[in-house]
Computed example of a mutant assay.
Amino acid sequence: MSLLRVGYVREHFSSPLLQYAHDDQEKTFRLVECPGGTGQLISRLTSNEIDVAMQVYHIFDLLLRALTDPLISGIANGSQSYRLVGSYVSTPLNWAVITGASSPYKSIADLKGTKIGISRPGSGSQTMAYVMALNEHWSPDALQFQVNNDIRGLIDSVNEESTAAFMWEWFTTKPWADKGEVRFIGSVPTPWPSWMIAAHPSPTRAPSDALRTFLHALSSYVTKFDAPEARETADVEFIKATFGYPEEDVKAWLKTVGYPSDCTIVSAEVIQDTLAVLSKAGVVKAATYDVKDFVDTQVASLA
């Protein structure tokens, strides 16, 4: 028996995946929750932690729904631990800029020269801080970071004022803002589609046939979730029941998010555009990259 291990972050974006996992009666894959976000997903894949369990079947690795920018910057900076095998969300991600409930910071401009909290080095929370700096015409070299591991650590940090702010997806952190535990002082949308899918390149850890089967099935769940009639009722009820979000927040988020019709297609233009922004931010070296080096073309189609 072969089992595909799928690392994911438990957020509303993962709804089609969770629906797929619920219906997977043959248990062809196993979800591995990574609350530390994309940085933790990449770290687990790189360090082989996702293979730790000793079981009677083969374990394969897949990072599902990881942020586009850390995945691409990791490969550009020489990582051999994964390659892109698909796309998951086709719209930008809106990152909230978040500070403590009683902190002195009122706007993004107030954060210049301060310390920014991140989940892990190489995470989306760090990459988007560089994008924020570019937008504000700050030097990326002037940014200071403190690693706080997960959302709880980030929230505690801004309230203890060991960091001035952190960045996280808007709707995921809105419940804490609604409770008055943190404050939003701005937002920065990604200059690229927000989520992609990556897998370990080893055929013994992530064989192409298993990945293709998984991705084609996932595409059907994404298509069902993305249907206009589902967005009106079924999606709203599923997210409310699964994540406890208020109905008005769910409906507002559904107006902003889009999914691809085929999860097995990776856009060459997205890779090139993302690299251009990351190069300006100093996250990757200014160089000429071959987009084929970023994609496992035995699994995904490069469009």
Rank of each mutant, 00 (worst) to 15 (best):
G124N: 14
L111T: 02
G113P: 12
G113H: 11
S119P: 03
K112E: 15
G124E: 14
I116N: 03
S107V: 01
W95S: 04
I108M: 09
T99I: 06
Q126P: 06
A101W: 10
R120G: 00
K115W: 03
S102F: 10
T127G: 03
P104Y: 03
S125V: 01
K115S: 09
N94K: 12
A133Q: 12
T114F: 04
I118M: 07
W95N: 07
L134V: 10
S103T: 13
A101L: 08
I98H: 02
I108R: 02
N94Q: 10
A101C: 14
T114Q: 15
A101P: 09
D110Y: 04
T99G: 13
K112A: 12
L134Q: 11
G117P: 08
G117T: 02
S102T: 15
S125N: 11
A96Q: 08
S103H: 13
I116K: 05
K112D: 07
A101H: 11
I108P: 02
M128H: 08
K115D: 05
G100P: 12
A129R: 05
G100Q: 09
I108S: 04
R120Y: 02
G113M: 06
S102M: 09
M128R: 13
S103Q: 07
P104Q: 05
S123N: 12
A109C: 03
N94R: 14
A96W: 06
A109L: 07
G100W: 04
Y105L: 00
